[in-house]
Design a protein around this nucleic acid. Structure first.
Length: 427
RNA sequence: GGAGAGAUGGCUGAGUUGGUCGAAAGCGCUCGACUCGAAAUCGAGUAGGCGAGUUGAUAGCUUGCCUCGAGAGUUCGAAUCUCUCUCUCUCCGCCA
């Protein structure tokens, strides 16, 4: 019996939900689910009747034994019933596990407001903030700026570890820490998030809960001879914090912020962003996670986006927000906004945050529910959301590139100075 | 890493010669009585999940099944016996 995790996805309500949207997932899959479910309900009904009988007769046996009456016929009759029960139980368990495996591979259904498109080229721009600065000299890339300043050492990173790993030195390391502190302070003090310091490795069950497993195992680093994976984002430990729990409605919305390193194998990204800090096996990120009532989740998505955007606004770095189209949407998300920051050396906007509403997709898999305080209060799945607030490494890059001068000096944005011992420049 | 103990309802904590135990008792909480009000006292209620019936109802009411860390097993029947796993605690060792 699996009553945790996506076991709940067998429920009538979830099936109806899928059926309602049948135009968006293959009819075949829906039919499969429907057949499975029907078979399961029939067996369940049969076995429950048998069990009711067994429970009743067991009590009779107990009573007769106490009275010293013979019980042989009853017991031998019950042996047959128990055998039948076993057959049905096995059948149900088999259906459950097949159904579960099957459901785990079905992606979330995009929200009605998500634009149709086949890839990132169809992602409409929603808003743009600030305008890229006109430089009167040839801009340098962050790798060159950082290396020259002695705050970034990719060569030695390659020596001690390998490609797609980095070493920040001196003021570069301090800047990383300043960015982290600034973001954490902003979100905890101004935006009402509670800070969490989660483990950087989690078990496979958590990875299933948020949707990384079973489909995306190759994107993860797994620790040998254990069930542990290095987290690809703090979303995983934070969202799973309440797995298998029923939260009080009055506690919602719950808002967490965490700074963690993130680990990604970046399998399949050969040749992409090979230079610099844009795409690494390990990078720092400040992550925002929310648990809320279903009817509030799209409001919460908007405020999540606002909270994340605030970081770049305060730093004074130009950025834009795009809405991911259906083709670019992640496996688990129902709707996603990307925040893209301006990178002068690439003359383009690059993703620095991804803010998503997963609706009840993760909540079903991780079995996270809530319940009202009233008498007739029902339990229902929460909605989960998360967004980067922001990717720290890419923020570091954006600061170097957007605030460089002709001599290679870097202007430190005002909000970070308190965290940099009052320094105004990196030089 | 070595040795040992344990995991029961919101909490504390009974229950281990298998049989009206989903579970004593206490605390907490809810409702009621008393009170001007409160405290104290007294009375009643108080785990979750999934189905079925009734209903306009995802309200109530009636009813079945499952759950005493998780999974598997023994048995007509398991919180109670066996095995595996997970976690917690104590002592020793080691260590940031």
């Amino acid at each position: 019996m699996s009553d945790s995790g996506i076991g709940r996805e067998k429920s009538k309500a979830s099936l109806e939900l899928l059926l309602k949207k049948h135009d968006q997932i293959e009819i075949e899959k829906v039919t499969t689910i429907r057949n499975f479910d029907e078979e399961r309900r029939n067996s369940l009904f049969q076995v429950e009747q048998l069990k009711a009988n067994r429970n009743k007769v067991s009590m009779e046996i107990a009573a007769k034994k106490k009275a010293g009456e013979p019980t042989e016929e009853l017991i031998s009759g019950m042996k047959k019933v128990s055998d039948q029960i076993k057959v049905y139980d096995e059948k149900i368990a088999s259906i459950d596990s097949q159904l579960e495996e099957f459901l785990l591979t079905i992606p979330n259904i995009p929200h009605d407001s998500v634009p149709i498109g086949i890839g990132d080229l169809e992602n409409p721009e929603r808003e743009r903030f600030g305008s890229p600065k006109k430089f009167s000299f040839p801009v340098k890339a962050h790798v060159d700026l950082g290396t020259k300043l002695g705050i970034l050492d990719l060569e030695r990173a390659g020596k001690i570890a390998g490609a797609r790993l980095s070493v920040l030195m001196r003021k570069g390391a301090q800047l990383e820490r300043a960015i982290i502190s600034f973001m954490l302070d902003l979100h905890t003090r101004e935006h009402g998030y509670s800070e969490v310091a989660p483990p950087l490795m989690v078990n496979s069950s958590s990875m299933r809960g948020t949707g990384q497993l079973p489909k995306f195992e190759t994107d993860l680093f797994k620790l040998q001879n254990t069930d542990y994976y290095l987290i690809p984002t703090a979303e995983v430990p934070l969202t799973n914090l309440f797995s298998g729990e029923i939260l009080g409605e009055s506690e919602l919305t719950i808002k967490f912020v965490a700074y963690t390193p993130c680990f990604r194998s970046e399998a399949g990204s050969y040749g992409k962003d090979t230079r610099g800090l844009i795409r690494l096996h390990q990078f720092d990120k400040v992550e925002l996670v929310k648990f809320c009532r279903p009817d509030r989740s799209y409001e919460e998505l908007e405020s999540l986006l606002t909270d994340a955007s605030k970081v770049l606004k305060l730093l004074g770095i130009p950025f834009r927000i795009v809405t991911l189209s259906t083709g670019d949407l992640g496996f688990a998300a129902a709707k996603t906004y990307d925040i893209e920051v301006w990178l002068p050396s690439q003359n383009t906007y690059r993703e620095i945050s991804s803010c998503s509403n997963f609706e009840d997709f993760q909540a079903r898999r991780a079995n996270i529910r809530f319940k009202g305080d009233g008498k007739g209060a029902k339990t229902a799945y929460v909605h989960t959301l998360n967004g980067s607030g922001l990717a720290v490494g890419r923020t570091w890059v954006a600061i170097l590139e957007n605030f460089q001068d002709e001599s290679g000096k870097i202007f430190i944005p005002e909000p970070l100075r308190p965290y940099m011992g009052g320094a105004t420049h990196l030089e």
